[in-house]
């Protein structure tokens, strides 16, 4: 249709050809669309199946499972879940994990916003040097400093405390988020701050009443990301926590994996469900935000 309009001579193209071509391409697209959608659905099933099959296994007794693993359970029995709950104690782990998550949000984001703002707006030789000093942190993997970190925390009696976990976690997050907030504040037009300072606002006033509100969307995404990071941490908590009462959710699950085998599969399956449920609920509620937050971090990386 478009081609016909563009044609400068105003001539109509022979109408016989067009419909045949379009029909042909449409059928072609339809076929491959169906095939590819089927492939995608199969791949999605591969992702979902390991999360759904435990449900089928978990209501059975060991004997019932050994003979008919794939049949529907004869009765709904909760014994496996009760045993798995006692073995994992996910509730306690969850509480500790939440403390670590909030602690790490509070300790990561305000310093990163402040530093990012200064590095974006106050250029001098000193801030430049300080910026590179913080950038160093971006290049250092956690693994590199595990041993000294552990030794330091032991000598400060900070190991086996939750703040001893989220403070270093924040230190590892700050460089990255400083970079993000720096590029965010750089993208805000300079005139906004200048007009504020002409109106007599000082540095603090300009920052808190103009810049900080503008940074709200970026901050929300940062909070989600830092939360997910702390939620998923394993290595640091493995090194720094040895008291069972302080274990995070991850460590609870990991110690379950160490001490209970897969031989009693129904109980194991129940433990899988119990352990995965908090994250699944979180994702179900906030997947749009989680994906958005993940992307906002990734694009800047």
């Amino acid at each position: 249709m478009k081609i016909r309009k563009i044609n400068p001579a105003g001539q109509r193209e022979p109408p016989a050809e067009r419909p045949i071509k379009r029909r042909a391409t449409k059928i072609h697209y339809g076929m491959s669309e169906i095939v590819i959608t089927i492939v995608l659905v199969i791949l999605a099933l591969v992702i979902i199946i390991p999360l759904v099959v435990p449900l089928l296994f978990s209501f059975k007794t060991q004997l019932e499972f050994a003979y008919h693993p794939w049949a529907l359970p004869k009765a709904i029995r909760w014994t496996n879940f009760i045993e798995a709950w006692k073995a994992v104690r996910i509730d306690q782990g969850l509480l500790n994990t939440l403390v670590v998550c909030f602690g790490s949000i509070i300790c990561t984001i305000p310093p990163a916003i402040l530093a990012g703002y200064v590095f974006a707006r106050y250029k001098s030789r000193v801030t430049e040097i300080l910026f590179y000093a913080i950038l160093i942190g971006y290049f250092v993997p956690v693994q590199m400093v595990l041993v000294p970190l552990y030794r330091m925390e032991v000598s400060l009696k900070m190991n086996d405390t939750l703040y001893g976990l989220f403070l270093p976690m924040a230190a590892f997050g700050i460089p990255f988020w400083t970079l993000i907030f720096r590029s965010f504040f750089k993208s805000i037009p300079r005139e906004m701050a200048e007009s504020a300072s002409i109106d007599g606002a000082g540095h603090w006033r300009t920052f808190f009443s103009i810049m900080l509100p503008l940074a709200r969307p970026a901050t929300v995404l940062a909070i989600i990301q830092v939360f997910m990071g702390a939620w998923n941490d394993y290595l640091l908590s493995l090194i720094l926590l040895s008291d069972q009462n302080k274990f995070t959710m991850q460590l609870r699950v990991a110690s379950f994996l160490n001490s209970y085998g897969t031989d009693r599969m129904p109980r194991y399956a129940a433990a899988v469900i119990i352990s995965a449920l908090p994250t699944l609920i979180l994702y179900l509620i906030g997947h749009r935000w989680i994906i958005k937050g993940m992307l906002s971090g990734a694009i800047k990386e």
Binding site: P111, L114, A115, L130, A133, I134, A171, F207
Partner: peptide
């Protein structure tokens, strides 16, 4: 502004 970040690091 830079102090908290530097202290942590």
């Amino acid at each position: 502004c830079v102090l908290p970040a530097i202290l942590f690091l």
